[in-house]
Design a protein around this nucleic acid. Structure first.
Lengths: 343, 343
DNA sequence: CTGAAAGCGCTAACAG
DNA sequence: CTGTTAGCGCTTTCAG
């Protein structure tokens, strides 16, 4: 069997309490015994048993992250940020990835199990009243990433502003007939971006032709956030009589924009010549394709969220904080810029 | 405080042993008490304490995955596969992501901590003798993904064959002056792909001009597996006198190929007109760019590796198994095909 | 500065 | 079918 503090205690001729103290850097241990214990410990190859520590300490040094993997790139970047911060404070990360949004609740349940993790990061998941209740009832330190609820700490980006800026960018480039490629109505970021877009149209006093607003009805389990959904939605726009077609399109997500680009290409349209396109997210492929889009500081969101979580784990009873990042427009070729940067 | 089996025992007027039995689906419990216990349990909102179970059972129901994140896409796909399999058998996943290869050992140490996880998946990490010793000494069930060592179960793809097929594809398309974009010599997959390539040249009786073999000396902490490294390496090839330049290039990784594409474009070359390109990996961007490349069954590798791990956790003393997948050539536009499929 | 002893919450013989 | 009783390995009073 593997070695325990009892073995060390025996060999070092001290009590297990002392061994424990040594490993927990308790101040009042004589230098002599400290050394002796350490020496014996690594002669024997001792390593503390995580579960036993967790049980006795009533904490696990583990943080869990529940994430729908729809947007794998987004998640990976956030994960990077989380890891960085977690490594610093010696916490481990339990990942509960859900392939689709409806599987999130199952993963949530597992992540919430008593004695599994000390805190939880929940990403890109709409907080319904029922989820909010469950989460509150669990009394687990929690930080929301890319979704919002007043009762919990959150780190989000300003989707309304992003939607508005997207349309403004297109209006500024002289477009009036601007198409909108939307995900399902259930998508909160989708709704916000649409709100923003609407707002920009109003400001500019431009009418938004309802024909040009297409809601993705495909891949609904992904809320329409797929290439295919974007592809089909774009085809629908392209099926309009030539004079009624949009001259530019704002797709609510890069994946959709990429599908749209494809549809445009197949229809023989040149981008940006015949059609300009703006996306949202700045996923990895976007730089290659030269897609104009909005960048979110994903890594930073991950580290900040983790930072907040660690703080909340320390001080559970502070007011929830809400950080909103501004999406940054990245202009590339699909809205007529000359060159793509080698990101 | 949260509710324990003692509370339930008290309320249900049974012993804690019975409560435990009920929750562990022990056969010999009367239906009546079973029901009573369950009823009381969820009246009280009981939930077993994971750490306590782990300590008593001597297992955690947790599997850890140690992964360098250099290739985030590859990792995400493998992760998907792992999650799928893990969900089925109710295991949780501890992720130890390392930003660079030299941080892998640190993460390994954490993943190996006693009482943290019952088994470990280790991805894309060269197994040096010293690592092999540590891993063997830990006696932890282990499966290697995308790397090989005779002592441990492994799931890999046949890089030698991939390298050979890449060159064969190019030779078959009539190229003789084929450039090779390689990562650092430390990279095992890189070496294998090169070996394969060499082999293909020999078979075809074509000489490989040493000038056309470029080793990426940039981004060494990533073993040269970056866009930038590919970009610079390609520039080096393009700096050759026109008559000595390659007419086709095999890049050992898609990220490098993408960088190479960029360099070619900047140099005013058209692809595939002036230069054909083959990559390796089939990352997400490749489909958009139309890059001809080799696809690895990443999700499948993840599930299989997990399957093997779970088996080894059950039967620790079986011979290590080694599964080798064949990379599949995906022909796209960079080697002259007409259309890209909308994957 | 150090030891004894009582948990942490659950599992698993061993009796009955 | 059910209860009693040791642990699992570590932390943490409470004494000394």
């Amino acid at each position: 069997m593997s070695v325990t503090i009892y073995d060390i205690a025996e060999h070092a001729r001290v009590s297990i309490a002392t061994v424990s103290r040594v490993f927990n850097e308790h101040p009042r241990v004589s230098e002599a015994t400290r050394r002796r214990v350490f020496r014996v410990a690594d002669e024997l190859g001792y390593e503390p048993h995580a579960s036993a520590q967790s049980l006795a300490r009533k904490n696990t040094q583990i943080v869990s992250a529940v994430v729908p993997m729809m947007t794998s790139f987004f998640f990976m970047e956030v994960l990077r940020g989380m890891q960085d911060r977690l490594d610093e404070s010696d916490h481990d990360l339990l990942v509960y990835a859900a392939r689709t949004l409806d599987r999130v609740d199952g993963q949530l349940a597992r992540a919430l199990q008593r004695g599994r993790a000390d805190g939880m990061l929940l990403a890109s998941t709409p907080i319904t009243p029922s989820r909010a209740r469950r989460l509150a009832a669990s009394r687990r330190p929690l930080v929301l990433v890319d979704s919002y609820h007043e009762d919990f700490d959150s780190v989000t980006i300003d989707n309304v502003r992003g939607g508005a800026d997207a349309v403004r960018h297109l209006l500024a480039r002289g477009h009036e007939r601007i198409g909108l490629l939307l995900p399902l109505a259930e998508s909160v970021p989708g709704r916000d971006r649409l709100d923003g877009a609407r707002q920009a149209f109003r400001e500019a006093d431009v009418d938004l032709d309802p024909q040009l607003v297409v809601r993705a009805e495909w891949d609904t389990e992904m809320h329409g956030f797929t290439r295919y959904a974007g592809y089909r939605a774009m085809q629908q726009l392209l099926a309009l009589p030539a004079s009624e077609r949009p001259t530019a399109v704002f797709a609510c997500a890069d994946v959709m924009a990429l599908g749209a680009l494809r549809a445009a290409r197949e229809a023989g349209l040149s981008v940006p010549g015949d059609l300009e396109v703006v996306g949202f997210d700045d996923i990895e492929s976007s730089a290659y394709v030269g897609l104009t889009t909005f960048r979110q500081p994903m890594v930073e969101m991950g580290t900040l969220a983790t930072e907040l979580l660690l703080r909340r784990m320390r001080e559970p009873d502070t007011e929830p904080s809400h950080t909103v990042f501004a999406p940054r427009l990245v202009v590339r070729e699909t809205t007529g810029a000359a060159t793509t940067a080698l990101a």
